[in-house]
Design a binder for these strands. Sequence first.
DNA 1: ATATTATCGGATATTTTTATCCTTTAATAT
DNA 2: ATATTAAAGGATAAAAATATCCGATAATAT
Lengths: 143, 143
Amino acid sequence: MFSKACKYAINAMIYISTLPEGNDRVGLKEISKAINSPEAFTAKILQILVRENLLSSLKGPNGGFEIHEEGRKTQLYRIVQVIDGDQIFTGCALGLEKCSEDHPCAVHNKFKAIREHLSGMMMTTTLEDMAKGIQNGTNFLKI
Amino acid sequence: MFSKACKYAINAMIYISTLPEGNDRVGLKEISKAINSPEAFTAKILQILVRENLLSSLKGPNGGFEIHEEGRKTQLYRIVQVIDGDQIFTGCALGLEKCSEDHPCAVHNKFKAIREHLSGMMMTTTLEDMAKGIQNGTNFLKI
DNA sequence: ATATTATCGGATATTTTTATCCTTTAATAT
DNA sequence: ATATTAAAGGATAAAAATATCCGATAATAT
């Protein structure tokens, strides 16, 4: 469904969102420990998220990553789009280059509803939402 | 969603199912031309499908691949399971090793409905169903 | 029996994804 | 100013997925 890079991205973004907003930033080491991901690879992914303005970072002592107010409204959809592209939302399930209503693959219509279901859910799910479950101990980021 | 191998497998199985049942077998070359897939790689995938009894094959002149009566009832679900495993049906969307009701990842419940929707559809969709759309020109296997 | 045909299966190559290493850059603190 | 800290970014390595090649095997036809 999602690439590993994307899974790390989502879990990392959620973890950062669980931390209190303010001057506190969280470092790469803590993040990758919290979500059980390879440090250097995670760094690459966070770089992309910073470049795309889904995440902000600061170098030096007390540096690290943070997400402020507005950023916590980021949709799950957006994170996936930035890391994996929107293949999963718009690409053909069977790999046809030009799959469409006019030239549908063998499962086009069968997948249509599922696509809409998936997109809809991911459009309406935000970091805030997901962070809540982690904060109150209902959901988990690792193991 | 699916690996390329799996997409080739599905399209190939559908193509073979569109052909009239009987003594007629279809060769690798024709199959990979019909679904626009690399020949040698497609051969590997067909081998797996044969080994798993989703497809039958015969060597030598007039050899090739075929699917008889019962085989045409094969569920889409089964093809995916054989080629990609059931990661997509049961695996955690965020990669947690032990994601479950008791230890759910951050999106466990959000994905639950989608998983069921997807599994249900793929359980009830058969080769026969999909072949119909190709036979009557509504759906396509390539481009 | 022998030649021909087409899948099977092992070995290998290429590409993509995942992962690591190390130098550079920028921020802070002394 | 200087040392320290942590992210940024380039280079490279390892693993997995995709793809190709070719000899072995099995079936048919002559």
